[in-house]
Simulated scan of single mutants.
Amino acid sequence: MVTLGAGIMILASCSGTQQKQSERKGLDASLVNNPHSANGTKNEGLPTMDFVDTAFDFGRLHEGEASSHAFHFTNHGTAPLLIANAAGTCGCTIPDYPHEPIAPGKSGVITVKFNSAGKVGSQHKSVNIFTNSNKGKHVLNITAEVLEGDNFFNQK
């Protein structure tokens, strides 16, 4: 009887462990790219992605007009910068980014194209950039005031 009870307790504790592990799936991604080690010392040899600017206002655009902006950055770190992915928060915002490593001290450009088709009014869009830099994720923001048809020429 004691053996049966011990077996049930082991099975119950295992199922509880599995439940706890599934509850822990939501770890903060910033832990993956933490520039500090577990003992609090700063890790060396990481790239950086330092932008000249991270926001751009297209101003007034005619609905259907497409426009783009070049965001310039430099790797001031000591290792090559790799951009794993760049994605707009909307299908109307398309980034074009370097797919080759950016060496320390070198610069690069991410061009963000915004298509205003079907986007009347105040627009706020962003592009998420995922890298191996000390920060990990970078965000670029664009804004525009998209005017519909005849309103465009009356409000310039």
Rank of each mutant, 00 (worst) to 15 (best):
Q155G: 01
K119W: 13
H72D: 11
K156I: 14
E63Q: 13
H99S: 09
A29I: 13
T48F: 04
F73Y: 00
L11P: 06
F153I: 05
I10T: 03
F58N: 03
G136M: 01
A66H: 14
H62Q: 15
V2T: 10
R24W: 08
G40L: 06
T3D: 12
L81C: 02
L140G: 02
L31F: 10
I83C: 08
N134A: 13
S122Q: 15
C90V: 10
L147N: 12
T17W: 08
N141D: 05
A38Y: 07
K113Q: 10
A55I: 03
V120Q: 13
E65G: 09
Y97V: 05
L11W: 11
T48C: 00
F71W: 05
N151R: 12
D150Q: 13
G118F: 10
I142A: 02
S37L: 06
P101Q: 01
S133F: 00
H69I: 11
N115C: 13
N128R: 15
K135N: 08
E23F: 06
I94S: 13
T17Q: 10
N134C: 08
G121L: 14
L11Y: 12
E65I: 09
V2H: 10
P95W: 07
V120H: 12
H138A: 04
V127N: 03
C90N: 15
V120P: 13
E63D: 12
T17G: 11
N34E: 03
H72Y: 06
P95I: 04
S30D: 15
R24K: 13
L140P: 01
F73Q: 00
S116D: 01
I10G: 01
Q19R: 11
D57S: 14
S122Y: 15
N141K: 11
N33K: 03
G91S: 07
A12T: 15
H36T: 05
L61C: 07
N39Y: 09
A84Y: 15
P47T: 02
F114A: 07
N151M: 06
C90A: 13
V146Y: 04
S126C: 11
N151A: 15
A87T: 15
I142W: 00
D96C: 09
S22I: 11
N141V: 03
G136S: 01
I129R: 05
S37H: 04
S15V: 10
N154G: 07
D96F: 12
S22W: 12
I8C: 02
Y97R: 01
T143V: 05
S13Y: 07
I142D: 02
I83T: 06
I10S: 02
S15G: 09
C14M: 09
Y97L: 02
A6C: 08
D28F: 06
K42I: 09
K20N: 14
I142R: 02
S126M: 13
K20G: 11
G88C: 08
K20Q: 12
K42S: 06
E148S: 14
M1C: 12
T89K: 05
A103G: 00
R60P: 07
D57Y: 07
D96N: 12
I110A: 00
V52L: 11
K137F: 08
G105W: 02
L27A: 09
G118Y: 07
I110V: 04
A38P: 04
T17F: 14
N115K: 14
A55R: 09
F71K: 00
K156F: 06
L31C: 04
S30C: 14
D96P: 01
A79N: 10
S30T: 15
F73D: 03
